[in-house]
């Protein structure tokens, strides 16, 4: 089966001379739900921009369902739906017109386009707003409008650049459910996000990009398995001011006097509770600290910065 997206040796140097991509390789299988993660300025939008013909590449290969964008651009485009990071619809145009006009650009006659537009506007909860000019929509509605517009020609690959930025939790969850449904029905999805729980909840495979390089390209499961230490936060009945000694565990107090315990994989939590019991400390509640993926992510970015720095020193 051909991959939904293949990127080889992709580089981008902007007109300003800034090298945003330094050789990206990326494969996304058909049917995958893929997250492209990375800090601000890492090169996520640049990568997706090149795939969607919004940015000219400097070098490298991009294939969408096997169609090379250098030789079979229009086939590649037909198979691709794009939700950009910034709002880019005509502010004065009506919701329905925006979606059907986009379909028209793909050569879909108005009659068919209207059916498809209605389907996606309904699914995304925008049908009531179909005659509203885009500028009068709320931020969350605008994001959904861009998704409906990207799907109107039923592409096999949907790429979304921060689709849930500025969207409230409830709406975000309903967008997740929508995207999961699309994915189940066969659409390959690639998204970028700064909400790591989003990637954790939705995606099967993940690539982490930083300073224009892929620092990790793996499955979410494998990535999470690498997290050998997990930190738990325990709220106790009395505020502690001295750190209790728990044999075999690294323990700290956080700013609010709650206990933070590092637990290695396979170590189990029983030891923690037995020792706390002996010390007469009662645990009221417990939670894991931060999102696991988030922690891993931060560590990886730090390591990459360290490596980049060392490499820099080597050259100097």
């Amino acid at each position: 089966m051909t991959n939904a997206l293949e990127i080889e040796g992709l580089t981008k140097t902007y007109g300003s001379g800034f090298q945003a991509l330094k050789g990206i390789d990326l494969n996304v299988k058909q049917g995958d739900f893929f997250a492209l993660l990375g800090p601000n300025g890492a090169g996520k939008s640049t990568t997706l921009g090149i795939v969607s013909s919004l940015v000219n590449k400097t070098a490298g290969k991009v294939r969408v369902f096997g169609y090379d964008i250098d030789t079979h651009l229009s086939d590649a485009k037909v198979n691709l739906g794009v939700v950009p990071q910034e709002f880019n619809f005509g502010q004065f145009e009506k919701v329905f017109d925006i979606v059907t006009t986009q379909a028209g650009y793909y050569g879909i006659p108005l009659k068919e386009a209207s059916v498809s537009a209605e389907k996606y506007l309904r699914k995304l909860g925008l049908w009531d707003k179909r005659n509203t000019p885009a500028r009068m929509l709320s931020g969350g509605m605008k994001r959904r409008l861009m998704i409906a517009r990207a799907l109107v020609h039923e592409p096999g690959l949907l790429i979304l650049d921060e689709p849930t930025a500025g969207v409230d939790i409830e709406l975000r969850r309903s967008m997740w459910a929508f995207l999961e449904e699309m994915n189940r029905e066969g659409t390959t999805i690639i998204l970028t996000t700064h909400y790591l729980e989003e990637a954790e909840a939705l995606c099967r495979n993940i690539a982490i990009i930083d300073h224009g390089r892929i620092v990790r390209h793996t499955s979410k499961r494998e990535l999470l398995q690498q997290l050998s230490i997990e930190t738990f936060v325990l709220d106790t009945d009395t505020a502690l001011d001295v750190v209790p000694v728990l044999h075999g565990f690294e323990v700290r107090l956080d700013d609010e006097g709650s206990l933070e315990v590092d637990v290695e994989k396979g170590q189990g939590l029983n030891g923690v509770f037995i020792q706390l019991e002996k010390l007469g400390i009662k645990v009221l509640s417990m939670r894991t600290k931060a999102n696991r993926l988030e922690e891993l992510f931060i560590r990886m970015i730090e390591e990459n910065a360290e490596e980049t720095r060392r490499a820099g020193e080597g050259v100097a």
């Binding site: 969607s52 013909s53 794009v82 950009p84 880019n88 502010q91 650009y105 793909y106 050569g107």
Partner: peptide
């Protein structure tokens, strides 16, 4: 204004020659 609002991107992503 299409260029200015980046609305032109609707055309750029599509296969219109």
């Amino acid at each position: 204004s299409m260029k200015f609002q980046r609305n032109i991107e609707e055309l750029l992503v599509s296969p219109v020659p």
